[in-house]
Amino acid sequence: MREFSNSSGRIVTVFGGSGFIGRHLVRALAREGWRVRVATRRPDLAYHLQPLGAVGQIHAVQANIRYPQSLAAALNGADAAVNLVGILAESGKQNFDSVQAQGAAAVADAARNAEVRKFVHVSAIGADANSASAYARSKAQGEAAVLSAVPGATILRPSVVFGPEDQFFNRFASMARLLPALPLIGGGATRLQPVYVGDVAAAACRLLAGAGKPGAAYELGGPSVRTMREIMEFVLAVTQRNRILAPMSFGLASTMGGFAELANKLLLGLLPAEFVFTRDQVELLKVDNIVSKAAEAEGRTLHGLGLAPESMEAIVPSYLYRFRKSGQFADERTA
């Protein structure tokens, strides 16, 4: 195994680098020749990232957004930083405000104090300070805090991110394996623009390399827009499952989400993931999650960064085959 030699001395600190997007970004950064410092609360759970680069190229360090000293230590000597810290649902002390608003502010303050040259903050399409969703509001507050502390930072707003370890297509495929019917919240009319995790990682690398406009927010979506109904139909076709798609009103879905939240609390978080959804997630589904016309016109997209996005049709079947009754040996002609 080759030793790593970084003649340029470039160091990038990736906060939240052990998560879904993080592992793909760490791999992409290593290929670009960066020395990658993965900042996470549990460094022992990030050792799986080390084989993604040469010996000594990827190193995990302990950092917690609640402790400024740990953030400063993680950024010591770094040339660039990426903040990926975020949650999809609240649990205990891990709430949207503390993680995605206050946490983003803490990381940005530390990046400013460390005088890093490039700072990329990963948010989400739909970030809106006036949203009915606490998730969307916290994302908007995090963006504002980042740009206040580091005006030259760049924001990435991906739509729903997919890839082998995602909690989107994998979740629906798992539900299809267990349930006779799948709910179409709001009738399944909500439009999404799923984006491949590798494209999100590539966009972050481009920004760290000097592409893009400082202080701008780039919206990342795949090559096509799909409704939730179309996405569900795609999952069923790929996994070769025959399931009923049952329309469900937003009101009923919100009520059921409240019961699911309560049940999960009473079971100390042990409710199977397939059955856990929240009222806040229902609020998110009331608004389309696609790249805006303004972002397209101004080139604040993957295409604007010189990247051609991968489609879900090209990637998703390569990892959803395991949900077929016969796995990889199923006859795809019957899909």
Rank of each mutant, 00 (worst) to 15 (best):
M1R: 06
M1Q: 12
S7L: 13
S7K: 11
G9D: 12
I11G: 00
V12D: 01
T13N: 02
G16L: 02
A28I: 02
A28L: 05
R31K: 15
G33V: 04
W34D: 04
W34N: 01
R35V: 00
V38K: 02
R42V: 08
P43H: 07
L49H: 06
Q50H: 10
Q50C: 06
G56R: 11
Q57S: 13
H59D: 13
H59M: 14
A63M: 05
N64W: 07
P68V: 04
A73G: 03
A74G: 07
L75I: 10
L75H: 07
N76Y: 04
N76I: 04
N76A: 14
G77T: 07
A78P: 01
N83G: 08
I87E: 01
L88G: 04
E90S: 10
K93M: 04
K93F: 01
K93I: 03
N95Y: 12
N95L: 03
D97F: 14
A104Q: 06
A105I: 08
V107K: 09
A108Q: 12
D109M: 06
V120N: 02
I125A: 00
I125R: 00
D128A: 04
A129C: 09
N130H: 15
A134Q: 11
K139Y: 08
K139G: 01
Q141F: 08
G142M: 04
S148G: 14
S148E: 15
S148W: 09
A149K: 14
V150F: 14
P151Q: 03
L156I: 11
S159I: 09
S159R: 00
V161S: 03
P164R: 14
Q167M: 05
F172K: 04
A173L: 13
L179R: 09
L184N: 10
G198K: 09
L207H: 11
A209R: 12
G210R: 12
Y218M: 04
L220R: 01
R226K: 02
M228L: 13
E230A: 13
I231E: 03
M232N: 06
F234Y: 14
V235C: 01
A237Y: 09
T239H: 13
N242E: 15
R243Y: 04
I244F: 10
P247D: 02
G251I: 07
L252I: 15
L252G: 03
A253F: 05
S254V: 01
N264M: 12
G269I: 02
L271R: 08
P272N: 07
F275Y: 15
R279L: 05
D280A: 10
D280V: 10
K286T: 13
D288Y: 06
I290L: 00
I290G: 03
K293G: 07
R300D: 05
T301W: 10
L302D: 00
H303D: 13
L307R: 03
E310I: 00
M312P: 00
V316M: 03
P317R: 11
S318E: 12
R322M: 09
A330H: 13
R333L: 14
A335R: 14
